[in-house]
Design a protein around this nucleic acid. Structure first.
Lengths: 246, 246
DNA sequence: TCAATAGTGTCTTTCAGACACTATAAA
DNA sequence: TTTATAGTGTCTGAAAGACACTATTGA
């Protein structure tokens, strides 16, 4: 390094373009439950590289527009789904020389959970095609570009794992829901059946839901409708729920 | 975007320096236990910006040398401590417009745990001054530059939290250790006393240590020396340990 | 009244907390 | 023989699993 006299002098002479720098992007795994299956949002790439291939939604940080990385994530989420408020969580950052043909590339991966009621898939400006895909049965045609399958797997693992000891999967629910519907969503997320009594005990004792006073009539006996409490939003249970022991 | 005919044509014309890109760095919270206190490694910055201020060790990705981000982290770890093998874990990525005076900056933060026996602080090439600092009592003179105190707090929180349900803190131990020493380290990490019987039961039933056959004579009754098992390396306990209930 | 779904009672199991106890060495 | 530290026996308590049970509706 040269020897500058002051910080100001140093900063005046500093130019990022004098250095070999990596690309930085944000990629997103946006989850919801569609037809009883945990699904993520896939987009067909409208531009090079990997034009026409399916991938996770994402893009570059707009240093003029985005104040912080999370803004980039929220912007992308809104562009694709029209949704603003949702559970948004940073999962991992992957960076290496190989993952993008344009060169050394870093991507910050976020996971978003959206309620299956609140989505209205917005056609993005670049007229990309967009669709929900079940995480367990991705058709051969939808093989994801770059290392996006790895990134997605990371997010799915995190979601499944947190599903056993946090309240997180509740963010996949609509504004009001029955406990059976909630249990069903948890089962889809963690991938195994859980006992109704244990599940209800856990939820009701944790103060994470409140009765709306309404009921839902669909099957035979009407079911009470609940909503999430604000206080429960980040709840972590003291033990994991595992499903059947045998 | 322009309309290229092929991916190759697109890539040939692509130049990262045509875009406004953020800086990308790696910062590290390197932990060990010194004098019964959880401590991290602080370095006195040898260059601008923030020359002369204390900070977390870190630096830019060397796109020529580092194949992947973790290589950058391992390189920094080795430069500062001379240690190669250690628990290394990505904690968070922070990126925003404000954190670095050079401009929009992203840092990928790693946490490393090193055994208090295996360190030999290497003077780094830029002749930085380096020292261990207790995380709970950082002297005013060592106020960290940039947002490094926030980054450190994130790492400490993660370590404390994982200390209650994983085997992670064992990576702070020397190659062999007594269960009392191990318990002591866990107590330092999680910040509360734990019951000896509960602790031993948990550890011994989890198959994460094995008897070395040797004993350590220091206090009165000699204590058995154990070592970590390889199989236990990533062990997650099924419940948290909390320390005293009252 | 029966089928189907909602919701409960209650016993067992697992593992942490509490704490009194025994064991083994040095001085 | 005392004292300090290592290490154990065993009871209690909290929360999950198992599963049989009751409740409420529509057909």
């Amino acid at each position: 390094m040269s020897d500058f006299k002051t910080e100001k002098e140093f900063l005046n002479s500093y130019n990022i373009h004098d250095y070999e720098v990596p690309l930085v992007s944000v990629d997103m795994a946006i989850f919801t439950v569609v037809d009883q299956a945990l699904s993520f949002l896939a987009v067909k790439r409208a531009d090079y590289p990997k034009k026409g291939k399916w991938a996770l939604p994402g893009g570059f940080i707009d240093v003029a527009r985005d104040k912080a990385i999370e803004d980039t994530a929220r912007r992308k989420l809104h562009e694709k789904t029209g949704v603003d408020t949702a559970h948004l969580e940073q999962v991992i950052t992957v960076g290496n020389r190989k993952r993008d043909p344009r060169g050394w590339s870093v991507t910050v991966v976020y996971m978003a959970l959206v309620g299956s009621d609140q989505l209205q898939l917005t056609a993005s400006p670049s007229a990309e095609v967009i669709r929900w895909v079940s995480v367990d049965s991705i058709p051969a045609k939808l093989k994801l570009a770059f290392d996006h399958q790895d990134l997605l797997n990371h997010c799915v693992d995190r979601l499944r794992s947190k599903g056993t000891y946090t309240w997180m999967p509740a963010n996949l629910m609509p504004a009001s829901f029955t406990l059976t519907e909630l249990q069903n969503t948890f089962e889809i997320v963690i991938g195994s059946k859980v006992d109704a009594k244990s599940f209800r005990r856990r939820i009701l004792e944790a103060d994470v839901v409140e009765d709306t006073g309404k009921t839902k009539i669909s099957g035979r006996r009407p079911a009470k409708l609940f909503r999430m409490t604000d206080s429960g939003r980040g709840h972590v249970f003291s033990r994991t729920i595992e499903g059947s022991r045998s």
